[in-house]
């Protein structure tokens, strides 16, 4: 599904990713752990193709196609979707409109309503996109858009941050739906990368593989729970030994 080779990325002239290699197969969910500033968000944004994240070396392949130089909209059309940690608000653009955009002409009228109901956003669909939304509402708005888009590769940046306990279970449920977790392991088609700082989301979503990203490189791979236990016990301090 996704292959990243020796990816170097800089932001505003500063190198952030310094040679990332990653392989994600169809149906797999990976978790990215790492301290703040280690490059986790940069990796997701680079996969999505945001122009501020400049690839200086390496390649990104999606479904076998080199997408390194494609703009974000082309990547979205190929099947990559992202949940931002801090999405911007856009005055005048309504949540339902962006739902229609994400559905890309597949709208049958009911889907937007049913997804909004599922995410308790029925009173928000006529409101300006993300404007005045609470932390939990922002996350649900992001997931609403992803449900409409139905991407094959889901990039989730800190899905649990700023979310209260009432909301986290719902967010976990929807992420599981996006990642086809209800299907048999072999028949799952969607893949995902979850960036998490706290690891709470792992109580709701099972991941297949984990990675620690530090100082712009993946320095450790393993079972997500093992890695998270290690980080919980020792923090990222011990990880620096592997740099």
């Amino acid at each position: 599904m996704l292959t990243i080779e020796d990816l170097h990325v800089e932001v505003a002239g500063s190198p952030i990713l310094k040679g990332v290699n990653l392989e994600i197969k169809e149906g797999e969910t990976h978790v990215l752990l790492g301290p703040n500033g280690g490059g986790k968000t940069t990796l997701l944004m680079s996969i999505m193709g945001l122009p501020r994240y400049k690839v200086t070396r390496g390649k990104i392949y999606f479904k076998g196609e080199d997408i390194t130089n494609l703009p974000p909209n082309e990547r979205a059309k190929l099947g990559i979707g992202i949940m931002f940690q801090k999405p911007p608000s856009i005055r005048g653009v309504k949540l339902y409109q962006i739902g229609e955009v994400s559905l890309r002409g597949k709208e049958d009228g009911d889907r937007i309503k049913s997804y909004a109901e599922l995410l308790n956003l029925i009173n928000h669909i006529d409101r300006d996109l993300n404007y005045g939304f609470s932390g939990g509402e922002l996350k649900r708005s992001e997931l609403f858009q992803l449900l409409c888009q139905k991407p094959d590769l889901v990039l989730l940046d800190e899905p649990e941050s700023g979310v209260d306990l009432d909301n986290i279970s719902l967010i976990g449920t929807v992420i599981n739906e996006l990642l086809n977790k209800e299907d048999k392991v072999k028949s799952r088609k969607s893949s995902g990368i979850i960036v998490t700082h706290t690891g709470y989301i792992l109580e709701y979503v099972n991941a297949d593989k984990g990675h620690v990203l530090m100082d712009g490189k993946i320095i450790c791979d393993g079972s997500p729970r093992d890695l998270f236990e290690e980080v919980k016990k020792h923090g990222y301090g011990r990880c620096t030994e592997c740099l």
Partner: peptide, 13 residues
């Protein structure tokens, strides 16, 4: 940031 956000949902610039 707003333009890029909408581009990630599939819209051209």
């Amino acid at each position: 940031e707003e333009i890029e956000y909408l581009m990630t949902r599939g819209l051209s610039k």
